[in-house]
Nucleic acid binder design. Structure first.
Lengths: 348, 348
DNA sequence: CTTGATTTGAGGCACGTGCCTCAAATATGC
DNA sequence: GCATATTTGAGGCACGTGCCTCAAATCAAG
């Protein structure tokens, strides 16, 4: 029940000094890695820290330092409902964390142009920012710019768009292969035993995320549902007209389509076009991200399931992770794992 | 982007005093509702609060007051894997919140005996506890004991087990009708178009939670899947032998069972018995709560879906809500909504 | 206008930590 | 043993808020 000193007061630096038999000044030197302390003394203080289970009171420390955590979220310039929702949740999260001395701002940058993005990152000053959360596809230029940011002491966190572990161990977002596999499993089980084809719609297949989702989707279908054949991904390139053209043509060509999987974050346009094309009721539609558009489609029955990640959770998790990095403290892994959620009309 | 003073320092009571044209002592009187201040002065200070967007620095305030939040979690004495997981996550959450001056303990009480429970609650002192999270079925005695706790100034939060809104507006846990409806929807879609029966297994149908889950389940099946007939709930009363007896008999009696829904939080025993009874592969099994037992059943294919709530989220949400109540501050609704999650073998 | 009550101000100490200075103690090299 | 360098201690101020005291200012009633 109580693994340490629980309900009584936590030990302070004063207690450390007393137990280690040194002064508070020396405790301070050890705690903040200042030099000019003999190893023997360092060890004694560290022993006291262990013995008392001392944990630095970060709130008091920040108060003393008047420290502020200034974080910047860099989001793509293009985007639709999901991006708007994400922005709103970031603002909300920043407001909620104001008590912990963190403030966050949000900047839309042309993240698809590696040159512009890397220039923007290079211009960021460590005087102004403590950490940056970046939602952008990977590129060599981005990788270099990130390295320079880290060298200048600015924390960097890949956000929602995966950087394939090249930048840092942790990443805020779902495992897209898992998401695709889950979409595939639901697709297979909802379609049933009939034989037919599955249509996959994407904004672009150039992004790592899309590839991973498609890969997970294919793997599941291939392994468990041999009755279904997945067509090559249709790419809309975010253009309404192109989306309409490719969807219309493809659907006309394949009368035996049993399901549609929209794997991009923004499903509004493809959904509207599918609606116009009047797909038969039994065609299973699975989309990503909970937005006004996908929710209303789920409720009116045209969409069967939404695979999603909680934007509020994404925002708060990024803030907590950036703060933990600045403090050099541990995160609570179970809290920061972004879940791949399944929404049906009953639990939306 | 910035709705108020964002990256600069937040206003302090000193700023309030200056702007309102009063002393810091008066600001303090107004902020902490001390008497002996003219209405006119109160208004001026409040105007300054509004104008500057002042928000009390709770960390500094708690430091000054040496305030600690001492919370108690009261959990049932009986329970299996889910309860163990919940306990672990409460400990973990308490550790994570230690920086915010909150400490939490955990007590197992015979929550099924209203007399014992209410006596236990009555014995709690406001000197020792600031808030209590209670996981227990509702009863008149409980309701009275809770009223007395509130009168003594101890915050109370219904936890996981719903109290039907009689105790307080907020409740930490899922909407069980939603959970049941979601189980029903998955059951119907996974079974497909065949005609047959669905078995429902519960520990007891005396609890509000079980009734709500069953109600949601029935509603969905009735409305959308007329091909399925739901059998009366089997109650195990938590006894292995009884569980084995009723399950064996019922399954023998109904050869056309297409699905099994285990609606209680602890599925280990029923799952084990079903395994022994060697149900055909096509029988769809849906259970609640992510535990070692349900996860392994999901992965080996015997269980098709787990409907669950995140125990870590439950614990942390309860801590945040109790703290917010003590502070008289607002919670972030979107963060505290406990989601009804669906786990398949791909996203477990 | 005086009296007494009410309201306000000035100032201080506390909380736990960071960060600074200056002197004292101790260790090291010769 | 002495001179010098290194290590340590004592003490203080700061952060933003709570809470206290005591005196001064302002108000209402006679």
């Amino acid at each position: 029940m109580d693994d340490s000193s629980d309900d009584l007061l936590r030990p302070t630096t004063k207690d450390l000094a007393r137990v280690a038999g040194v002064s508070r000044a020396t405790v301070d030197r050890v705690l903040n890695n200042r030099e000019g302390v003999r190893q023997k003394t360092v060890d004694r203080v560290n022993a006291a820290i262990r013995d008392l289970g001392f944990v630095r009171n970060i709130a008091a420390a920040n108060l003393a330092k008047s420290r502020r955590y200034r974080f910047l979220f860099i989001l793509p310039r293009t985007g639709d409902l999901f991006l708007q929702e994400l922005s709103d949740r970031i603002e909300e999260g920043a407001a909620a964390f104001a008590n912990d001395a963190v403030s966050a701002e949000l900047q839309r940058v042309d993240t698809n142009d590696p040159h512009i993005l890397s220039q923007y990152l290079t211009d960021l000053s460590a005087d102004r920012w403590d950490g940056v959360a970046i939602m952008a596809p990977q590129s060599p230029q981005l990788r270099d710019a990130v390295t320079r940011l880290l060298e200048r002491g600015i924390q960097v966190l890949p956000f929602v768009a995966n950087q394939e572990g090249t930048i840092s161990d942790d990443f805020v977002g779902i495992d897209n292969k898992t998401a695709g596999a889950t979409a595939g499993l639901l697709m297979g089980r909802f379609v049933g035993r009939s034989q037919g084809k599955i249509l996959v719609v994407a904004e672009t297949m150039n992004a790592q995320d899309s590839l991973e989702r498609r890969h997970g989707f294919d793997m599941t279908l291939h392994r468990k549902f041999p009755n279904l054949r997945v067509l090559p991904s249709l790419e809309t390139y975010g253009a309404d007209s192109r989306a309409e053209a490719v969807l219309t043509t493809t659907i006309a060509h394949h009368p035996d389509i049993l399901g549609v999987y929209i794997l991009s974050s923004e499903a509004r346009v493809p959904l509207r076009i599918l609606q116009q094309l009047n797909m038969p009721d039994h065609v299973v539609q699975i989309v990503h991200e909970r937005t006004a558009s996908t929710v209303s489609a789920l409720l009116d029955g045209s969409v069967d399931a939404i695979i999603t990640q909680d934007p509020g959770h994404l925002a708060r998790s990024a803030l907590r992770r950036l703060k933990a990095r600045c403090d050099g403290s541990e995160i609570l892994a179970s809290q920061e794992r972004i879940r791949t959620e399944i929404l049906l009309e009953t639990n939306v």
